[in-house]
């Protein structure tokens, strides 16, 4: 009748065991923040023109869409799931938007809600499949990834350039601040999404249920929390965010193309992890994800400023960083020792 004897297996050593658990979950976040500041400092010293507020804002301009997508991914990762379909959903959104606006001549104001609805609905559908048939999220969203990418080609195999005056005007709008600094509309949207996500995750029942689900799914169920609804909802949020990210990318690129956002799902997950969210779920901050996105953008900026480096170095550095952060998570004791 005993439930097992404590410590039957060797536990990994925990060098940070003396740090309080509350602090421990924040360490990766702090490391990311320090890293960001350090990179900016090094860049400012090494490269002329690096030290300017506009370089910082350009990070947001060039990565606003990724931020939105990564925020969606954070919801999913917090529940302990994963959504591999986001990159393809972004591409589908760009193609759908460009096709509807250019080839079909629909007004952008009508297209935007439709695209968002498509994103949210496909996310919800994947969530429903994951929940109802108890299938690994990895597998279901992998299927979603192929499906969405394939659907792009049924709409258009070529890149569709957008010439619609409203859309172009929207894309080229610069919102000026003091000192001639400017941001684009997508940046404002992305920041709004970030704030909204923060409020939802930390100050609503839905958000707290997301954390509970990531902490221990069977406990959450036994505590009488709406596990199924929440699961479906996080994938819907992820789908919605990738559709919105796709819209922002359409504005950024002024085109829709099936080859847009190749591998963006991995960038989004990488940003989430570098931002301090545990891949096992239950611990992390959406603001950390924003830092993660900025780190990724900063690496890209570095490569650009260096000029002599191939852009593949971005990938190599991201890969190395990811490894470091995953090991860091492990050392921080993402998994607590077995009870008993």
């Amino acid at each position: 009748m005993s439930t097992g004897t404590a410590g039957t297996a060797a536990r990994p050593t925990r060098p940070f065991a003396t740090v309080s658990p509350r602090t421990r979950t924040r360490v990766p976040l702090l490391v990311t923040a320090v890293l960001l500041v350090a990179m900016f400092t090094v860049g400012s010293v090494r490269y002329e023109g690096f030290l300017s507020a506009q370089v910082g804002l350009n990070l947001l301009i060039d990565n606003g869409f990724l931020l939105v997508v990564a925020v969606g991914a954070t919801f999913v990762v917090l529940t302990g799931g994963i959504d591999l379909s986001v990159g393809s959903m972004v591409a589908l959104s760009t193609v759908l938007t460009a096709w509807l606006v250019e080839s079909q001549g629909r007004p952008l104001a009508a297209v935007v809600p439709l695209v968002l609805l498509v994103g949210a609905a496909s996310g919800a559908l994947m969530g429903w499949i994951i929940h109802t048939f108890e299938i690994q999220p990895f597998v279901v969203t992998l299927a979603g990834m192929f499906l969405a990418r394939g659907l792009c080609y049924t709409i258009s195999t070529e890149s569709v350039t957008i010439t619609d005056p409203t859309t172009v005007a929207l894309a080229q709008t610069r919102l000026y601040g003091p000192g001639g600094l400017f941001v684009s509309i997508p940046v404002v949207v992305a920041l709004a999404v970030l704030v909204l996500a923060f409020v939802v995750l930390h100050h609503t029942r839905f958000g707290r249920t997301v954390y509970a689900l990531g902490g221990n799914e069977s406990s959450a169920r036994l505590m009488g929390l709406p596990v199924g609804t929440t699961k479906i909802a996080v994938y819907a949020v992820s789908g919605l965010c990738s559709a919105l990210g796709g819209l922002l990318l359409t504005l950024y690129m002024l085109s829709g193309y099936a080859l847009h956002a190749m591998g963006m799902e991995l960038d989004a997950i990488a940003a989430t992890v570098i931002g301090g969210t545990l891949l096992t779920g239950g611990s992390g901050f959406v603001l950390g994800t924003a830092l993660g996105v900025l780190v990724l953008g900063m690496i890209q900026t570095f490569v650009n400023f260096q000029g002599t480096l191939s852009s593949w170095w971005t990938r190599i550095v991201i890969g190395a960083l990811l490894l470091v952060f995953i090991v860091l998570q492990r050392l921080m004791g993402g998994r607590r020792p077995a009870a008993g």
Binding site: T3, T25, Y211, G215, N216, S218, S219, L222, G282, A339
Partner: peptide, 12 residues
């Protein structure tokens, strides 16, 4: 119900 293994969320 309170189960044998504590069924709560350690992260909350």
């Amino acid at each position: 119900t309170v189960y044998q293994e504590v069924n709560l969320c350690p992260n909350l």
